[in-house]
């Protein structure tokens, strides 16, 4: 049996199949559908320093092979998260990676200090790439801001740090390099692509927030391209996410250079999928004569020039 363990700098996971933030609630909602112990990790919904009501509905709309969302980081704030959700999450037989967002470096520092009290957390993922909130949350469009936020967080928190980056930039590589330079243990690629849906008969946007983030199988080619670009040029482990809904999709991301993957939108329409993929991965690796996941990561062969 192939060894499914993966190590991303200071973060070690029993297998490379995680569930993505914003598509798994706070885990208790999915308990009926999935065996948490089979997952490589759970990343609950983004938490901010203060409660946020989120954006007005409609918040999601299905598009061809995908969906747009403009949830707007609807959450009850870090204190409520620690008080009401964290005990439950940490009681699960699965590594928990908290996901946080702040408006500025100072807010990220506050979040870091609060989460530093919970060494049982496997890591913290910084959502510096949500397209649905205004006011500087989209740090990951700028390498200097990315570096500032990641290093601020690292200095205030001993947990492994993952930076979740946006595809809505000209060159993700320089942002990923900035995250690496600031000491991130890994980068997650990619958050949603900014998009829009229109009801032309009413002459109105469909989403309450006008624009939203595109996810689902429709964005997989973009995610693969960015994972490959970053993994082949920046010395930092990459966690791939974007449209994964089958074992073939998982393997495509691994071959492109991802050390681990996240299942996102597919959990909405196939709540048990991530655990099933984790179960099936070792069989395929055995068939490929891979002793460990790392034997297949980044094995893409490019055409000769």
């Amino acid at each position: 049996m192939a060894n499914l363990n993966v190590t991303l700098n200071r973060l070690s996971l029993q297998n490379p199949i995680l569930v993505a933030s914003g598509t798994f609630g706070y885990a208790r909602e999915t308990a009926a559908f999935i065996d948490f112990s089979k997952l490589g990790g759970i990343i609950p919904k983004t938490v901010t320093p203060q409660p946020r009501a989120g954006n007005p509905p409609p918040r999601t709309i299905e598009t061809s092979c995908g969906m747009l969302n403009s949830i707007g980081l609807d959450n009850d704030g870090i204190d409520y998260f620690i008080e009401k959700h964290l005990d439950y999450l940490l009681s699960l037989d699965c590594p928990i990676i908290a996901n946080v967002a702040g408006h500025n470096a100072e807010e990220f520092k506050q979040l870091a200090e609060k989460l530093n009290a919970f060494p049982q957390l496997a890591a913290v993922e910084l959502n510096i790439s949500c397209p649905n909130v205004s006011g500087g949350v989209d740090f990951a469009t700028n390498p200097e801001l990315t570096q500032q936020v990641v290093s601020t967080f690292r200095n205030a928190c001993d947990l492994p740090v993952i930076a979740k980056l946006t595809p809505n930039v000209t060159n993700v590589v320089e942002i990923a390099q900035a995250a690496a330079d600031a000491g991130a243990d890994a980068v997650t690629l990619i958050n949603t692509l900014l998009g829009m849906a229109i009801d032309w008969k009413k002459r109105k946007p469909i989403l309450g927030n006008v624009v939203g983030g595109l996810s689902g199988p429709a964005i997989k080619p973009v995610a693969l391209r960015i994972v490959w670009q970053v993994a082949s040029t920046v010395d930092i482990p990459v966690i791939g996410v974007g449209g994964i809904q089958s074992l073939d999709d998982v393997l495509e991301f691994l071959v492109a250079g991802a050390s681990a993957v996240q299942i996102g939108t597919a959990s909405f329409y196939n709540p048990g999928l991530a655990a099933r993929l984790a179960d099936e991965l070792s069989t395929v690796l055995d068939e490929q004569n891979c002793e460990s996941v790392s034997d297949i990561v980044g094995t893409l062969v490019l055409p000769e020039k």
Binding site: F24, E29, T30, F33, P58, R59, N69, I71, D74, F268
Partner: peptide
Amino acid sequence: ACGFGICFSCV
């Protein structure tokens, strides 16, 4: 979108 509480669409 999901029906069981993870997407926060149906608010």
